[in-house]
Every structure is written in structure tokens, then in C-alpha cells.
């Protein structure tokens, strides 16, 4: 696609702007900022990827994945505001997920050990794990308030903190996986996934594209599950005060 052709796609933005202005949605500023950011970020990433593919430096590859994890962890950990050390816990969960995914893909020889495969697949894995982790935290905060009675009842019956939050954690993990599982059920029928579409447009054989998409869908499922579960194990203690194992309130009424 030429840059002239690319420039014409600004038309889509103008349509959105027009609707926003016409319907007084007040989104013009957000759209403008979003447009510029999306364009600049994506173009920059394109050039960075080009450079990485050429340099074949492992350090550069590691640095890029580190940046992905840091940005994703910052984004997702905002959902767990107030929980001490949540950024590091989220980053640890994402890193462990990434290592596990790439470990399996590379050790079994499913993908080639080149940046061309590792970077996009890492990005998608970390991105999906970030969404799952964010949903997990959102639900955990909500559940730890709404299931307060259940948790305290279990504590009063002599449950350990782990036993007391077992049900709450389970519900939060389940919640965080809903989009991934729903996506898995409808993939190909409702929407053609972005990666597959991209490969087909770029000239790949559709069946070849589908094979990679299946890999992605399966990897997403386990990355979401692994991230949520790890995060649960890393955060549940923070729901309790250190001294006497009493339930802490985050964001709720102060007491």
C-alpha cells in the first residue's frame, strides 16, 4: 500500500469526526489525539521492527519484550489501584506467561526462533494477558467487596486467608477469561482475526493463515488462564492485613 493510499484512510477519521460533531458526542479531541497517537506509534513500531529484524540482536529483542511487558503491566495494574506492589505483581505474571508461551512455542519448534515470529506473537500474547489481568483485578476488587460477608464468615470459621478467598479468586479468574473463551467460540464466524486478515491481505495462503490463527487462539486461552491464576496467587494476600489476617478495604468506605 502506498503512502498516498494510506493518506486516504484519514477519510475514516473524518467520518467519525463529522458524526461526533453532528451528534454532539464531544469526542473530537479524543479522536484527534487517538488518531495521531495510533499513526505515530504504529509507524514507529514498523521502523523499530525493521531495525530489529535486520540487526538480529538478542538484547534488542529482549528490550522490546521488556517494554511490552512494562507498558502492559502499567495499563492493567491501574485496575487494581490501592493494592501495594500491584505493578510488580502484574509485571511478574505477564513475564511468567510470556516465558511459558515462548518456551513452549520455541522448544517444540512450533515457530522459528527469529524476531519475525517472536515479536508479533509476544505482543499478542502479552496484550491478551494484559486484558485478562486487568479484568481479573477489576473483578477481584469488586468481589472482595461484594463477597466480604462470605470471606469473613469463612475467616470466622477458622479458614486461612487462602481458603477464605478461594471462591472469590475462582470467580475472578473465570470472569477474566470470558472474553477469551467467547472469542474462541465465534472466531472466524463473527470476525476474521486481525492477524489472519493481515496475512491473507499480504498474500499468504488462507489455510496457512488459519494455522497460525489457531496457534494464536489456543495460546491466548492459556495465556489468559495462566496470567489470571498467577496474579491471583500473587495478590490474594494483599487483600488481608499482615498482622491478623483481616480483610482490607480498597476503595470502599474507609475503615
Amino acid at each position: 500500500m502506498s503512502y498516498t493510499a494510506l493518506a486516504f484512510t484519514v477519510l475514516f477519521i473524518m467520518i467519525t469526526m463529522f458524526i461526533s460533531y453532528w451528534q454532539k458526542l464531544g469526542l473530537e479531541k479524543g479522536i484527534a489525539v487517538g488518531t495521531i497517537r495510533a499513526a505515530v506509534q504504529l509507524l514507529a513500531v514498523g521502523y523499530v521492527l525493521q531495525a530489529v529484524f535486520e540487526s538480529r540482536s538478542h538484547w534488542l529483542l529482549a528490550a522490546i519484550i521488556a517494554v511490552m511487558i512494562i507498558v502492559a503491566a502499567r495499563n492493567a495494574s491501574a485496575k487494581g489501584k490501592g493494592i501495594p506492589g500491584i505493578f510488580w505483581r502484574m509485571a511478574a505474571a505477564l513475564l511468567a506467561t510470556e516465558l511459558l508461551m515462548m518456551g513452549i512455542l520455541l522448544l517444540l519448534g512450533i515457530i522459528e526462533p527469529t524476531p519475525r515470529y517472536i515479536i508479533p506473537l509476544s505482543g499478542m500474547t502479552i496484550g491478551n494477558a494484559m486484558v485478562a489481568g486487568g479484568l481479573f483485578l477489576t473483578q477481584l476488587m469488586r468481589e472482595s467487596e461484594s463477597s466480604r460477608g462470605e470471606i469473613e464468615t469463612l475467616l470466622a470459621l477458622g479458614a486461612s486467608p487462602r481458603q477464605a478467598v478461594q471462591g472469590t479468586l475462582k470467580r475472578a479468574v473465570r470472569y477474566s477469561m470470558i472474553p477469551t473463551i467467547d472469542g474462541m467460540k465465534t472466531v472466524g464466524l463473527v470476525q476474521l482475526p486481525g492477524m489472519m486478515t493481515g496475512m491473507i491481505i499480504a498474500g499468504a495462503d488462507p489455510v496457512e493463515a488459519v494455522r497460525y490463527q489457531i496457534l494464536i487462539v489456543f495460546a491466548f486461552t492459556s495465556s489468559a488462564a495462566v496470567t489470571s491464576m498467577l496474579l491471583g496467587l500473587l495478590t490474594y494476600r494483599k487483600l488481608f492485613s499482615d498482622g491478623i489476617g483481616m480483610l482490607v478495604r480498597y476503595g470502599g468506605r474507609g475503615d
Binding site: G149, A156, G158
Partner: peptide
Amino acid sequence: ARLWRRQVAYVS
């Protein structure tokens, strides 16, 4: 705490 609560049981 969990040992304490087994011996001092609270019924809300």
C-alpha cells in the same frame, strides 16, 4: 489468626 478464630468463634 485462624487458630485463634477456631477457639473464639464469632456468629454475626
